[in-house]
Write a protein that binds this DNA or RNA. Structure first.
Lengths: 188, 188
DNA sequence: TGCTTTATGTCAGTGACTGACAATAGAGGT
DNA sequence: ACCTCTATTGTCAGTCACTGACATAAAGCA
């Protein structure tokens, strides 16, 4: 019965998001999601290890970040390389926006999903750290650049959701500049 | 039937830890934990919102941290206040060590528990941020001091588990000194 | 002693997730 | 067009986390 191959996954993601917006995450059963996608509950759990995963797409982000950090100009420092990598992924974020934006809303009101979000952030941070080490950055510095880069990125994505008029690239740039302001002057 | 009052909770925590060490987290059912504590599964879920919570003790830590940060000497800066607060809670950590140490081992090999751990860390970080703001620290600085303080504390606790010969207070001190080293010199 | 409150037991039910096995659609070869 | 082989999916039964409703007994108090 392999009729759609990779499309089944996408259909289930879309069906899930629709239902979550209609009835909330807790009010939606995995069987309902599967049904709307024209498939069985069992198939749902073959594609996603658990119900929460339907809202996240870590694998793709992970792979693209790995590649982007490797391709960043060698002259760039660790934090700059991270920012550069996210900048280069901006088109992907823009493209996924129709799904990502309402997804954030659902996550925001569901503790179980916020928890998973934290785990995903941690996982991506580890991935960035390793990618930086492949650029011959020492581990401690790589880790620091990774968490900082993730924080800046998260901030920029947040701002982008609230103000879609500005392109994501600009939000990245602003957040990065704000960080520089923070670390520069000794106040008072 | 209120015979033990608060003791039931402690008995269930101990029973859970024992069983987790014997059969692993996933191999242990909530009913088994309850049975070993001489109680019903339903009672277990009356005391803990879910199975994972049996391994964490956020409420107490949260309350004590709030108080400790409020009591820290006024002359201390935000990060110093956080470190001071954790220092003052060292006796509590030392006392809970028999439970906390094996608990860490269980968490380390159970993804579901690591996820919850991240959530707890985030929650405590928020609590510290708010406590610092009550000391008239501006929000951005308070948040930065909170995450930094949590990172230093986590590092110290990690080291303490691996080297119990040194008192926890010393580990806190060492980790704090290490942080200062990191932020001081501009390498190369 | 009788009454109220509180912690627990009992029971039935939902929903997430899993293992085992059967059934079918598609690719590729003949 | 027919056959074969493999990747996916459907079906079914079962475990376990978690919940609501109601009954019950212990503890505190009048």
């Amino acid at each position: 019965m392999p009729r759609d191959r990779g499309n089944v996954r996408r259909r289930m993601r879309e069906a899930a998001l629709e239902l979550f917006l209609e009835k909330g995450y807790d009010g939606t059963t995995a069987a309902e999601i599967a049904a709307r996608a024209g498939v069985t509950e069992r198939t749902f759990f073959r594609h996603f290890p658990d119900k929460r995963e339907v809202l996240f797409n870590e694998a793709e982000l992970h792979a693209r970040l790995d590649a982007a950090i490797a391709e960043a100009p060698p002259r760039l420092g660790p934090l700059e390389a991270v920012v550069w990598a996210f900048q280069s992924l901006a088109p992907m974020f823009e493209e996924n926006r129709p799904l990502a934006e309402p997804g954030r809303a659902v996550i925001a009101q569901t503790p179980a999903l916020q928890e998973r979000q934290l785990a995903k952030t941690a996982s991506i941070t580890r991935a960035i750290t390793e990618a930086l080490q492949r650029r011959k950055i020492e581990p401690a510095l790589a880790g620091l650049a990774a968490v900082t880069g993730m924080a800046v990125t998260g901030h920029a994505l947040q701002a982008w959701v609230q103000d879609p008029s500005l392109p994501l690239v600009e939000h990245f740039e602003q957040a990065f500049q704000a960080l520089k302001q923070l670390s520069k002057p000794a106040p008072r």
